[in-house]
Nucleic acid binder design. Structure first.
Length: 784
DNA sequence: CTGGTCATTTTTTTT
DNA sequence: AAATGACCAG
């Protein structure tokens, strides 16, 4: 068992004070790299060491990764033989709410088996709602309606409340769609992400007995990243805390970057006003980054006016100055970043996994990815949702969701004719009409297709097969040999339940016809889809039923009933719905990480590059209007800079292709806000004059240097990307050579035009006539 | 009913 | 550039 003294070793006075705090409200203002996680985990260990039962402690985070990390670190600090350690609840806000809502489903007035709708499902449902209330989609977009609904829900307004408050035509129109949307969700037994918080907050507010029960259970609260909580989360936290005020919130107003999704920075700024007896501890010393990096970050953030002044400082050496590189275009930029990383890897022996490229928008990842791939530097893109966004995966999961919840019509519609099985639009329209007229659900109407007028015999048979397929899967639930899971505490590797889940998944993939559909064609793309489906099946086999439900098993070792296959399925779908991009950053893989600035919050790397420091990108176009939004962009940049421990690289491309258009950019105002004595600026954009006007045909063709003798040393070694297509174009496609284009077919190169923006070629195609193609983009292959 | 082509659009960030 | 949605020919 760790003695209390060990919990306090190596800490600053401020940190010690926070760790030692037991009862009452506590606000920890933790600057970047200030040892926040250490303080939080040790404080929880200290609570336990002081005799507080772990099951009375609730810690809420924003990502699964943060929750897992926190739990792991607490586990290491708390002796294993301490009884009841398992009862500790560490969860994300959303997953905590899901568990709570399933447990108190009847009190919350919802179906225990509710489905969680992700952004795409939500969009589908909103579209349907707009259709129902006749909102022409030319004046309204599902996105704008969705944003309005989301904002309302974050402020704890449901459709009724919104309708009552709606005054003008604009809001009344939204209100109509809102009402219809809510009706659809209700009918489908579905909750969207915002609902998870909204319903929980309302449950806690309106049901005294539930609130009391939970208050008694969770005597000590800890909320991480408190600066990013929204009003609903605020209500949840304080409903739970109101009985005992044992609430510890941790955060940094300078790192508040989720205002756009309803996060209210006032929650943290006004905490002391809300709890006058609160103790506030500021952790300003940075243990992560070297001097210049901290100086640059501090200077940048001091430009924010609406801000609580907080001193940032480090005792680490000054280290290398952050480098700003002005690049020619995005390919050049990517090349510079790869080159810098390679140098750090070879000269300083820094592992790839200790480096990251950060950017404001996901679309920037493509060019970067190409550069890393072409230069054989291992990389991963942290896009947790990407896998689950793929068509084939969404389809397979829709089958599962409809299996678990037959009321989920959004999923049903998705898969009823995917793969095509002869239940087309006409048939579905007729069945829908029939359902509407007879006041029954779509699923029920599908049970009696022969009674629906105008449905062909063929369609009736197809529907019958469709029904029996799901009946067969659902009956797996009743088969006890499939549902047994070894012990409620889980944790130990293989379980019968996971096997059942994997078997179900396997059957779904095969019997639905998805597998056959992709097996039929031989394209690479379809082969990849098949592989993804296989991966999905293996992932299901590895799925472990969550050990701790968090509400029933107060007594240690309480015997929970074995989860059924349906329980497994719900838990699995839930875990899939709540993954975040940040969750996918796997420290075990030896690769450079590419991710958005948002996803980087809470992480740190030895080497960090931030790409695209341009007006309109960082700060982003849509955020540059209002001062408050601009300040959030600045905080985002601040978050990015403070991820770096030793080396920081900031890049700007003077020309960037955006939505197919090549445009000149303007340097980000944030670059101008950095103290020039703490940074090094390298302008490598102008060098391309040598490239553009140099004589291309002979001079620079031989070596790997597309810039001839004009380039300086640094510049000369750039070209991993350029060598592939852009820089070598004159060699690759000489005038007169025969080429193949995926769309236009076979052609003959008539001429080559060399431009700074990228060379183009006039190609005479046998079928399609003469076209001018940008070599960088056209997928041209030379044919001998 | 299916599969293709053409026209239109693109919210930045995410639980 | 890419992804959707509408429309039209089999």
């Amino acid at each position: 068992m760790n003695t209390p003294s060990e919990l306090f070793s190596d800490l600053t006075e401020a940190q010690k004070k926070a760790v030692a705090h037991l009862d009452g409200p506590l606000l920890v203002l933790a600057g970047p790299g200030s040892g926040k996680t250490t303080v939080v985990t040790r404080r929880i260990a200290n609570l336990i060491a002081n005799g507080i039962p772990p099951w009375q402690i609730l810690a809420l985070t924003f990502t699964n990764k943060a929750a897992g990390e926190m739990r792991g670190r607490i586990d290491k600090l708390v002796s294993e033989d301490l009884p009841g350690r398992r009862g500790l609840t560490v969860a994300t806000f959303h997953s905590f709410c899901v568990r709570l809502l399933r447990h108190y489903a009847s009190e919350a007035g919802i179906n225990e088996r509710f489905t969680i709708y992700d952004a795409a499902d939500q969009r589908d449902a909103i579209k349907q709602a707009m259709k129902e209330v006749d909102l022409s989609s030319s004046n309204w977009t599902p996105a704008s309606i969705g944003a309005a609904i989301s904002n309302a829900k974050n402020l704890l307004m449901n459709a009724d409340a919104y309708t009552k408050a709606a005054g003008d035509f604009y809001t009344r129109s939204i209100a109509r769609a809102f009402v219809a949307y809510e009706r659809i969700l209700k009918a489908n037994d579905a909750l969207d992400f915002d609902d998870l918080l909204l319903f929980t907050a309302n449950l806690l507010r309106s049901r005294q007995e539930v609130r009391k029960e939970l208050q008694a259970r969770f005597q000590y609260l800890l909320i991480d990243e408190y600066q990013d909580t929204n009003h609903a989360q605020f209500i949840i936290a304080h409903s739970l805390a109101s009985a005992h005020s044992n609430i510890c919130v941790v955060g940094d107003p300078d790192q508040a970057i989720y205002g756009w999704r309803g996060a209210d920075i006032r929650n943290i700024l006004e905490f002391e006003g809300q709890y006058p007896e609160a103790i506030t501890i500021a952790l300003g010393q940075n243990f992560r980054s070297t001097g210049h990096i901290v100086a640059v970050a501090a200077a940048l953030i001091s430009n924010n006016k609406r801000r609580k002044e907080k001193k940032l400082f480090t005792r680490l050496p000054e280290g290398d100055k952050p480098v700003v590189i002005i690049c020619q275009d995005e390919h050049h930029e990517a090349g510079q970043i790869v080159e810098e990383f390679r140098k750090r890897h070879e000269e300083d022996d820094i592992a790839w996994k200790d480096m990251a490229v950060l950017y404001r928008v996901n679309s920037l990842s493509r060019v970067l990815e190409e550069a890393f791939r072409d230069s054989h530097v291992p990389y991963v893109i942290a896009r947790g949702t990407a896998f689950y966004d793929r068509k084939e995966i969404k389809d397979a999961l829709a089958y599962l969701r409809f299996t678990a919840n037959p009321n989920d019509e959004v999923s049903l519609r998705r898969i009823i004719n995917t793969p095509t099985r002869g239940i087309g639009k006409t048939t579905l329209d007729r069945i829908e009409m029939y359902a509407l007229r007879n006041q029954i659900r779509l699923v029920e109407a599908l049970r009696e297709p022969s009674r629906v007028e105008g449905v062909s015999a063929r369609a009736v048979t197809a529907i019958g097969k469709f029904n029996s397929m799901f009946d067969s899967w659902r009956s797996m639930n009743g088969n006890s040999s499939l549902i047994a899971i070894s012990g409620g505490t889980g944790g130990t590797g293989e379980t019968g339940g996971a096997g059942g889940l994997a078997e179900l998944m396997d059957r779904v993939v095969r019997e639905s016809g998805l597998e056959a559909m992709y097996k039929k064609s031989r394209t690479d793309e379809d082969f990849e889809r098949l592989e993804n489906l296989g991966e999905l099946v293996s992932a299901a086999a590895d799925f472990v039923f969550p050990a701790n439900d968090g509400f029933e098993d107060e007594a240690e070792g309480a015997n929970l009933p074995d989860p059924t296959l349906l329980d497994m399925l719900s838990a699995y779908l839930e875990s899939v719905a709540l993954v975040s991009d940040a969750d996918m950053v796997d420290p075990a893989n030896g690769a450079v990480t590419l991710m958005t600035l948002h996803a980087a919050k809470g992480l740190e790397f030895n080497v960090v590059a931030i790409a695209g420091l341009e007006q309109g990108l960082l700060p982003h176009q849509r955020a540059a209007q209002a001062e408050a939004e601009l300040e959030e962009e600045r905080r985002l940049c601040f978050v990015g800079i403070t991820r770096a421990r030793r080396h920081l690289l900031l890049t700007q491309a003077t020309v960037r292709t955006h939505r197919g258009l090549r445009e000149r950019t303007i340097e980000s105002q944030f670059i101008g806000e950095l103290p020039c004595e703490a940074i090094i600026t390298l302008d490598k954009a102008g060098v391309d004059d040598a490239y553009v006007y140099g004589d291309g045909s002979g001079g620079d063709s031989g070596g790997g240097d597309p810039f001839g003798e004009g380039g300086d040393k640094d510049f000369g070694s750039w070209s991993p990307r350029g060598a592939g297509r852009g820089g070598r174009d004159d060699n690759e496609f000489p005038v007169g050579c025969r080429v193949m284009h995926p769309k236009f077919g076979l052609g003959l190169v008539e001429s080559i035009t060399r431009r700074p923006a990228g060379s183009s070629a006039r190609v005479k195609f046998t079928r399609a006539g003469t076209k001018t193609l940008i070599l960088e983009y056209a997928k041209l292959h030379r044919v001998e």
